[in-house]
């Protein structure tokens, strides 16, 4: 039946054209295959990297890994480090929290304010400039930001500190938060602003109490993603907080951070340290993944306003 129909459609088509059609059809199929292969490679690489880190990292986790700071390795009689020695990464987790907390303290208010400026007041040339600057800043390599803060703070004060790291991360976070907040507030329907103005509410209260709460989930998502991105940054921290084997709560002292600890341990010759680096990678990637997934679920299918 199928054949009969195609024969009927083919009636009057020369063999040469039929051959050309076969070529075209083959090219079409091959390209479809290649396109699918490209997508498959992308997904496979992601799963490979993620799976590898999670499997390797899972094995390194233990209660002491979370509850202890770095300890010197213990060696056995043959001079090999004993598995399970070397303490944990508590100082890195707390250090990351300290640095990120300080950075969030600086960058969330600034990013929110600048984002509100762009969406609520920004119609003129100055707004164009602000938007342009924010976009340029998101394109600056993080190592350049690191060098900037290094020469501004570390070289001038003479020592590495959590403050310097927080400053560097803030410079990365503020433009991201600014632009996300702007885009999300723009989605809030004007009708809500008008409803508020018509009740005799001043513009600033309208922005803070009507516009911002209506877009809360989107704004929070944007902020969380910016914090998550900053949490994985290594290069700027390398140049600013240096690292510290002990827990440090003093923002003007060198501090540890998870990515720095991974960098340090990954390049050490001891298998125990490498395993700890995987453990630290596991924590870092899980935190980032959980945040990415949660915010994705939280915003899925939800329209702002």
């Amino acid at each position: 039946m199928e054949q009969a129909r195609s024969r009927a459609l083919d009636a009057g088509v020369s063999p040469r054209e039929r051959a050309r059609f076969a070529v075209r059809r083959t090219v079409n199929l091959v390209m479809a295959g290649l396109v699918g292969l490209a997508a498959l490679i992308g997904v496979a690489v992601m799963l490979f990297i993620l799976g590898y880190v999670l499997v390797q990292g899972w094995q390194a986790l233990s209660p002491t890994f979370f509850s202890q700071s770095a300890q010197p390795l213990d060696f056995d009689a043959k001079g090999q480090p004993i598995a399970g020695s070397g303490g944990g990464v508590l100082m890195s987790i707390l250090g990351s929290l300290l640095i990120l907390g300080l950075a969030a303290l600086i960058s969330i208010p600034l990013g929110l304010l600048a984002g509100m400026y762009l969406s609520e007041y920004g119609h003129g040339k100055f707004a164009f400039l602000v938007r342009y600057v924010a976009d340029v800043m998101t394109g600056i390599p993080s190592i350049v930001t690191g060098v900037f803060v290094w020469s501004l703070v570390v070289i001038t004060t003479g020592h590495f500190s959590a403050w310097a790291g927080a400053l560097a991360l803030s410079i990365i976070m503020v433009p991201i938060i600014t632009r996300t907040v702007e885009e999300i507030l723009r989605l809030v329907p004007n009708a809500l602003r008008e409803a508020s103005y018509a009740l005799g509410v001043p513009q600033w209260r309208t922005i803070v109490k009507v516009v911002l709460p209506s877009a809360a989930s989107g704004v929070i998502t944007g902020i969380v993603l910016a914090v998550a991105r900053a949490g994985g940054e290594t290069a700027p921290l390398l140049l600013t907080v240096l690292g510290n084997e002990a827990i440090n709560w003093n923002p003007s002292q060198p501090t540890d951070a998870l990515p720095l600890r991974i960098y340090d341990y990954a390049t050490q010759p001891y298998a125990v340290r490498i395993e700890q680096a995987w453990g630290a990678s596991f924590i870092l990637i899980m935190v980032i993944l959980v945040f990415s997934l949660l915010t994705r679920i939280a915003t899925k299918g939800k329209k702002v306003g």
Partner: peptide
């Protein structure tokens, strides 16, 4: 203008209650 709008209220084409 803010005080003006407190004395002269407005109802709009599409109902716009605050969704939150």
């Amino acid at each position: 203008p803010v005080k003006v709008r407190r004395l002269i209220g407005m109802v709009f084409q599409k109902p716009n209650p605050f969704p939150t």
